[in-house]
């Protein structure tokens, strides 16, 4: 991405990422610099919301790694996403406890209702994206859904749809 074309907002984000990477004192000649990659990517995703190619390239450059190395790591770990998320991220837990309590039905119904599949694109209006998670450790509340960090437990299909509709109303 060329600097001239970059918006002020994007510039500020790259600057924020740079400030973090600066604290790592990366030494080009030390192979152990690689050890900071995942933490840097976490930070980058926290700043940008996702890890598009230009962000990966930036991290690669700052850590003196190849773009392929960074991309290989990003594509390996579920936590990293290269696509932007919707305004509301709906995470459906598909851990065992939730599964035996019927969370896959909840997921299927929400996918049907919003017309998008889990872990793909956000809805056309950009409002929702769905992810299937493996165990958030709230097994006591199974089945569990998380919307932007807020946990909803002991759900039924009907209850889950009601919650999504609430968010839809808020827009």
């Amino acid at each position: 991405m060329c600097c001239q074309q970059m918006s002020e907002a994007a510039k500020a984000k790259f600057a924020e990422l740079d400030r973090f990477i600066d604290t790592l004192n990366i030494d080009r000649k030390n192979e152990r610099r690689r050890g900071w990659l995942i933490r840097s990517l976490h930070r980058a995703q926290a700043i940008f919301g996702y890890l598009p190619r230009e962000v990966q390239q930036h991290v690669a450059k700052r850590l003196f790694l190849s773009e392929a190395q960074v991309s290989g790591v990003v594509s390996f770990y579920n936590y990293f996403t290269t696509k932007p998320k919707g305004k509301y991220c709906i995470d459906i837990c598909l851990g065992t406890a939730c599964y035996v309590k019927g969370s896959q039905n909840i997921l299927a119904e929400i996918e049907r209702m919003l017309g998008v599949k889990a872990d793909t694109e956000p809805t056309a209006d950009g409002l929702f994206s769905i992810s299937a998670l493996r165990c958030v450790g709230a097994c006591g509340l199974a089945p569990v859904m998380i919307v932007n960090g807020k946990v909803y437990g002991k759900l039924t299909v009907a209850k889950a749809i009601e919650i999504i509709n609430e968010y839809k109303k808020q827009g």
Binding site: Q69, G72, S75
Partner: peptide, 10 residues
């Protein structure tokens, strides 16, 4: 040490 290729996805 070209680094064009990587294991990708999983």
């Amino acid at each position: 040490t070209v680094g064009a290729l990587t294991g990708y996805g999983r």
